[in-house]
C-alpha cells in the first residue's frame, strides 16, 4: 500500500509532458493509474517521476471520422467508450471495455494505459490487434504511426519508447467482431481471451494470455476447421501459472478462438 518516494507533475500539454518525460530517465507517464499505482503500491516498480496526463485535454475524446474511422484519445476511459455514441460505430469496443474489471476501474482506467501496460491478461491488446487498430506515438522528434500488431513487444513493453507518449488510437470501421474469454469467476483476471474480426477480408484472430504479446492468427476462412488449424499451427507455448497450466491455456485458446469467430460470424 505504501509507495516509495516519487515526484509528481501534472502538465497541461503534450509538449510539456514530453519535456518532463525526457528530463528524467526514471520518469513515467501516469494515465488512469489503475495498473501503475498498484504496481507502485507493491513497490514492484518505483518511477522517480510521475507525469500525470490528466490535464491534457487533447488526449481525451472520441471522434468518428467521415470514413467511419474512430479516433480515440489515449486518456479516454473505458467508461467513456462504453457511454459514447460514436464508439458504437465499432460495437465490440464498448462490449469489451464493459468486461474490464469493475465500475471504479472502468471510470479511471484508460485505453492508452491498458495497452501501454501490456499485461498479457489485459483485454484490449488482443482486441486492438484483431480489429487492426493503429497507434499514434509522439516523441521529441515528432509523431509516428504503429499498427497494433507491431505495438506490443513484450510483457509490459510496447513500441512507446523512453520519452515518448501514446496519444491516439485509430480504429477502422467494422462490426463483424467477436470476443471470448474464460476469466476466473465471472469477472476476474482472464485465463485466456481471444478477439476475432471478420471485417476486411481474411479473418483476424488475436489470442491473449498465451504469450508475452497477443498472438495474431489469420485463418484461411472462418470455418471451424480452418480456425482450429490456425490455432494448432501456431504451436502456442503458453505460460504456466497458478491459474492455469500451459495445456489448459492451449486448449482454451482453440475453444475460445472458435467461439470468438462464431460470434463475429453472427455479426457480419
Amino acid at each position: 500500500m505504501l509507495l516509495r518516494e516519487v515526484e509528481y507533475a501534472r502538465p497541461a500539454s503534450v509538449q510539456e509532458a514530453l519535456r518532463l518525460l525526457g528530463a528524467n530517465d526514471g520518469a513515467r507517464a501516469l494515465a488512469g493509474g489503475q495498473t501503475l499505482i498498484n504496481v507502485m503500491k507493491a513497490r514492484a516498480a518505483s518511477p522517480d517521476v510521475l507525469v500525470d496526463l490528466a490535464d491534457i485535454g487533447e488526449l481525451r475524446g472520441i471522434e468518428l471520422g467521415s470514413d467511419g474511422t474512430l479516433e480515440i484519445g489515449a486518456m479516454t476511459t473505458y467508461s467513456d467508450i462504453i457511454g459514447s455514441a460514436e464508439a458504437r460505430a465499432r460495437p465490440i469496443l464498448g462490449e469489451v471495455c464493459n468486461q474490464i474489471a469493475d465500475v471504479q476501474v472502468r471510470n479511471r482506467g484508460t485505453m492508452g494505459g491498458n495497452v501501454c501496460s501490456n499485461d498479457p491478461t489485459n483485454h484490449l491488446p488482443p482486441l486492438l490487434v484483431a480489429i487492426g487498430a493503429t497507434m499514434t506515438i509522439v516523441g521529441q522528434n515528432g509523431e509516428r504511426s504503429v499498427p497494433a500488431e507491431e505495438f506490443f513487444l513484450g510483457v509490459y513493453m510496447t513500441a512507446v519508447g523512453p520519452g515518448e507518449l501514446l496519444t491516439k488510437i485509430f480504429v477502422p470501421p467494422g462490426k463483424g467482431d467477436g470476443f471470448a474469454s474464460v476469466p476466473i469467476g465471472k469477472d476476474g483476471t482472464c485465463i485466456v481471451n481471444v478477439a476475432a474480426s471478420l471485417d476486411g477480408g481474411a479473418p483476424r484472430l488475436a489470442i491473449g494470455c498465451v504469450d508475452a504479446v497477443p498472438v495474431l492468427l489469420r485463418p484461411d476462412s472462418a470455418e471451424d476447421d480452418a480456425v482450429r488449424a490456425a490455432v494448432r499451427s501456431a504451436n502456442l507455448d503458453p505460460p504456466w501459472d497458478v491459474h492455469a497450466s500451459a495445456d489448459y491455456r492451449r486448449h482454451l485458446a482453440e475453444v475460445l478462438a472458435l467461439r470468438a469467430v462464431a460470434q463475429a460470424a453472427g455479426r457480419t
Binding site: 476466473i184 469467476g185 476476474g188
Partner: peptide, 28 residues
C-alpha cells in the same frame, strides 16, 4: 470454486491478494 492458497516449489504463496485469490463477487 476458486479460493485456494497455492504455493510454488520455493514456498511462495501464489495467491497472496484478491487478484489471484478470487473471492466471490456480486456477479459470482
Amino acid at each position: 470454486t476458486h479460493e485456494i492458497f497455492t504455493y510454488d516449489e520455493e514456498g511462495n504463496l501464489l495467491t497472496p491478494n484478491f487478484y489471484d485469490y478470487h473471492v466471490p463477487h456480486a456477479l459470482d
